[in-house]
Structures are given as structure tokens and as C-alpha cells.
Design a protein around this nucleic acid. Structure first.
Lengths: 163, 163
DNA sequence: CCTTATTGTAAAATGACTTTACGAAATAAA
DNA sequence: TTTATTTCGTAAAGTCATTTTACAATAAGG
């Protein structure tokens, strides 16, 4: 059975993927985490938070950053980030505020924005606990450790990339 | 230092993330895999392959599936999938072909589409080897194993989800 | 057979961007 | 300091992926 046939086939419930296909695994798990965060946010009453807003509500969260710097960080155009910031500002989740000196206005989370952030953290903490229990703490720690190593490796090979 | 302050802070080069933030780790690694696949496809000469096409070129690859079933599998509307299929058909990467009986037309990868699939597999195999070397085979195996476990767990809790 | 749900498309609307553009500000060069 | 150049923030228009609305053609169920 060729590698192509293996992947081409519809998934049998008990079918296992072969080594090279961790792409699909990563995607599936990542999508689940993301949709859980989204659901948690909505369940917490922030119904107007949209999926695209994750571009801003992702690590590292904005805390006194210049719009253009934020754009670079999230790998978007200044205009695209500006579009999202404007929207999030209207929803009351971020603020543009001049810091000390009559410097330019920087981007901060508002109080409500920080509530969203906390909601995300709580969701992730719960998921962490649940999965660590399910998988076994030792193995899950290895998993997280490898993930951390990979993300560091990846970030240094792709300079100026953090989102 | 509160959990919020931790995440809010701009990343120092040698900064470590705390436990709950594997969301960011997953995202970073997944994005790297995806952009590598994209680059591999383009480097292989398929310059007209667009990012959105990954919706169709993802596990499980279409191999005689009904459009509406594909839409359900990839969690998109029938119209959205149809839009992509039409595009990929014009580019010569997929085919609509009636199978035995004058049944309805099903979706298959074309020969060129299979070349793209092989390109993706090659890219993933190379990445697999590179990372296993870097991380250490035993630990990387644990990593993949946990990933597999999580993706299975996630899929059964979210029925009809495979993309 | 008739009724009801599912399918494949089309057309229009929406959302999330990118591209083009430009004046205002900051930085660097002279 | 003055000038030149780059970076910045935004606006306006365009593009692309996707959803919504709609409908006729099948298929499935009773």
C-alpha cells in the first residue's frame, strides 16, 4: 500500500495514521483548542467576539504596543491590524492610549479585554488539567516540553515571528 | 506576578511560557508546518496552489467523495466547497467523475493533484526526520503518540470532525 | 405514488483581508 | 538645522473566501 493510498482512504474509526502525518494531528488538536477557547469566550458572555479577533487576542497579548509593531508581530498588514483594533475598540475590548510623554497612542487591553484574556487562560488551564489526567502527567509533560522545544526552534528559524 | 502579566509581557528571547499556554505553542508549530507545506508545494512548481486549497488538500484527501459529504467533512458549506472544487478543477488538481452506474459525480484528485499530495508527504517526512533527530527519537515518539491520542479523543468528542 | 429531505448551483451579500495612496511624523543625512 | 528618506497611521477601493438566500433536480421515506 503506497503512502498515497494510505492518506487517500477515508478514515476508519480504528485506523492509525503513519508517521509523516503529524500535520493532520497538529491541525486537529489545534482546531479543538481554538474552538474550545472560542466557546469559552462566548459562554462567558462575550458574544460579539469574533474568530478573527484571535489575531489580536493571542500570545503575546498587546500591552502598550504600537499598531505597526503589532502588525509585524502578528504578520499582518498595518491596515488589517488597524481594522481589527478599530473593531475591538468599538466593542470595548482594547484601547488606544497615549503613554507618558505626548508619544503616539499605544494599544492596550481594556478591563473587559482582560476579562476575555482570563477566560482564555481558565479554559486552557482546565484543558491542561483534563488532558494531563487523561494522558498521564509524565507523558503529557514530555509532550509539552517537546512542543516548547519545537516552537522555539521554529521561531528562531523564522525571525520576527511570535503570534 | 499574575497570570495576566505573564502573558501580557512582550516575549524575551529566553522567556519560558507557563503551563496553560500550550495553545500558543500548538499554534506556532502548526503554522510552521503549514507554511512549510505551502512552500514545498510552490517550490515543486505548483505556483497556482492557494492557501485556501488546503481545505481540500488535507487529511483525508478526497478520493471518490460526494461534494456535500466533503463539505460536511471539512466543516464548510456546500457552496464554499463547491467554489474551491471548481477552482481546483480548473487548475487541474481535482476531477469530478461519475463512478460505476450513472451515479452522481464524485470528487477525485487528478494526477497532478496526486503530485501535490506526494509533495506534501515528502515535506512532512523530511520534517519528521529533522525534528526526530533534533528532539531525540524516543521523546519525539512520545510526542507523536500523545498527539495521536489527543486527536482521537478530540474527534470522538466532536462527532463528524476530521479535517 | 406522494411527500419530504437532500443535493448541487447560482446570485448576492458579508467579512477579512490586500493594494494603492497619501499626508504627517520620525529618523537619518547633509 | 535643513533636507531627504523612511516609517507611520489611515482611508478608500479592490479581492478573495465564505455565508446567506434561493431554487430546481434528485433521492428517500412513507
Amino acid at each position: 500500500m503506497s503512502i498515497f493510498d494510505e492518506l487517500t482512504k477515508q478514515p476508519n474509526t480504528s485506523e492509525e495514521l503513519q508517521p509523516p502525518f503529524f500535520g493532520a494531528l497538529l491541525r486537529i488538536v489545534w482546531q479543538d483548542v481554538r474552538s474550545r477557547m472560542y466557546k469559552a469566550i462566548h459562554d462567558a458572555g462575550f458574544a460579539d467576539f469574533q474568530d478573527a479577533h484571535f489575531a489580536v487576542f493571542s500570545y503575546p497579548l498587546p500591552d502598550g504596543i504600537r499598531p505597526s509593531e503589532l502588525a509585524r508581530q502578528k504578520k499582518m498588514s498595518r491596515q488589517a491590524i488597524n481594522y481589527l483594533i478599530t473593531q475591538l475598540e468599538e466593542l470595548g475590548y482594547v484601547e488606544r492610549r497615549a503613554s507618558e510623554g505626548s508619544d503616539r497612542r499605544l494599544i492596550y487591553l481594556s478591563a473587559r479585554g482582560q476579562e476575555i484574556a482570563e477566560t482564555i487562560f481558565t479554559c486552557l488551564r482546565r484543558l491542561h488539567a483534563e488532558w494531563a489526567e487523561e494522558i498521564g502527567h509524565e507523558r503529557f509533560d514530555v509532550f509539552l516540553d517537546v512542543l516548547k522545544q519545537l516552537s522555539l526552534k521554529v521561531q528562531e528559524s523564522t525571525p520576527e515571528a511570535s503570534p
